[in-house]
Design a protein around this nucleic acid. Structure first.
Lengths: 255, 255
DNA sequence: TAGTGGTCTAGACCACATC
DNA sequence: ATGTGGTCTAGACCACTAA
């Protein structure tokens, strides 16, 4: 128990060592990320207390604290006063869709009904392969689905994933899983999404999109291309969404 | 010099005082915001050193530090190692448009050419009055302008401001001012924008928008409605933008 | 009551900018 | 050489949670 994790190799000290000085707490932060990435602590679990980590890394509590603080603002960890610090998880999140910024014009932002159209394995097109860092010819999983509110489809998503890490993903498993999709990815495939970039444009609906979203062909739609990354800024999901913004809007905060 | 600012009334101590416990550093933060709002330190100027502030508030440097840290992440202050801590300003910002999230598909994100269409004083329509917390019948300033890249218009903005604080704003002053518009608002009218929310939709161009943006009528455009706030979360600008996303996109980061 | 994170302090020293 | 912010420490005490 007390010795399962030996005192870590003391990190490089903060003496002037020529190039690339890095504060102790940044080094601790990197070590913690490594442990998270390596699965030493699983999503939803508590990590050791600050004092334990301080002993393990041979630094003061304050230094560990600063490292954890940054990981908490990065949403990799969640602090709970009196209880401990936990690995963030998509599974038990109150917010249904952590990255979905779509809100209804009126009424509460209730959950939306999912409907999976298909889930196929195909060779990744060149642009998808480029975005996901795949070699040309590598196969990918393509999932298509809609989200509806009040029986009306609002979102049409086309989700590209590298086939390797997502072996065994089927439309059935997607339908049966209750929580958010990223929760499934995390618990079943060990891929945790931590950050994403979106490129947003206005486009017009083509015939097939119009049919699926039940709008006239040529209607304006919001095109949202999301590239989601896991640890180490590795891109692992390319999601192309079309949003009907007739009674919804994409909300953003600028600071 | 040393006594121009007397020791501040010691803040409420952190004894259990029934309802609403607030950490010392939060109280310091509030006091600093008050000084910023009151103009004790102007945008671009340095605030007193951490040790000076610690003496003034009768707390430790670490407590002042934590308060300043939060104000820095809120973009109200800017820390410069070895020099001091400065009041953030829109005037001398490297980034041309702090809140504009539009990026070109190709090429660098160079500055865009502004062109002011008009600047009028009119009674605020009901929806604008509601957004800006004006009484119905209050007058407002309406500025219309375009932003162009490579001689092609990309953005058409309709900017609503409360007439009171912006007395004396004319199209001419807008055209003559070199920097970003928020820099003008800050230095000439004492209104500093701190935070904004945007609601984004896809729409189609009507006749007049299409003409100004040089696109066919019915083209898809990104509608970006921005509500910008100053200190105390007071809304002071409603900006309705139409973006041509044929060769540009709205970029967003999700954490 | 014990353990956790949260706050606050005082002091040392480092890195950076300026004179 | 001086002054600024940046890092790190050690220790005290508070607030919250759970047994």
């Amino acid at each position: 128990m007390s010795a399962t994790v030996p005192t870590e190799t003391p990190v490089a000290v903060h003496a002037s060592e020529g190039p690339a000085f890095s504060p102790l707490y940044q080094q601790i932060k990197a070590l913690l990320v490594k442990s998270l990435q390596g699965g030493e602590w699983k999503p939803g679990e508590a990590i050791p207390s600050e004092l334990e980590l301080a002993a393990r890394f041979r630094v003061s509590q304050g230094t560990v604290r600063k490292a954890i603080d940054e990981l908490a603002t990065d949403n990799l960890l969640v602090r709970r006063q009196g209880k401990g610090t936990y690995v963030a998880t998509h599974a038990e999140e109150n917010i249904q869709y952590r990255f979905l910024r779509l809100a209804p014009d009126e009424g509460p932002a209730t959950g939306m009904a999912r409907s999976f159209l298909d889930c196929r394995r195909i060779r990744a097109p060149a642009d998808v392969a480029r975005a996901l860092d795949l070699k040309s010819g590598d196969s990918a999983v393509l999932v298509r689905r809609t989200l509806s509110r009040n029986e009306r489809p609002v979102v049409l998503d086309e989700i590209w994933l590298p086939a390797g890490p997502f072996k065994g993903l089927t439309a059935e498993r997607l339908s049966q899983y209750a929580g958010p999709m990223y929760g499934l990815f995390e618990s079943e495939f060990g891929v945790r999404m931590i950050r994403a970039e979106e490129k947003i444009r206005a486009v017009v609906a083509d015939a097939s999109s119009a049919a699926l979203l039940q709008v006239p062909e040529g209607s304006p739609l919001l095109s949202v291309e999301r590239l989601a990354h896991t640890y180490g800024d590795k891109p692992v999901e390319l999601r192309r969404g079309l949003y009907n913004t007739a009674s919804h809007f994409y909300r953003n905060e600028l600071n």
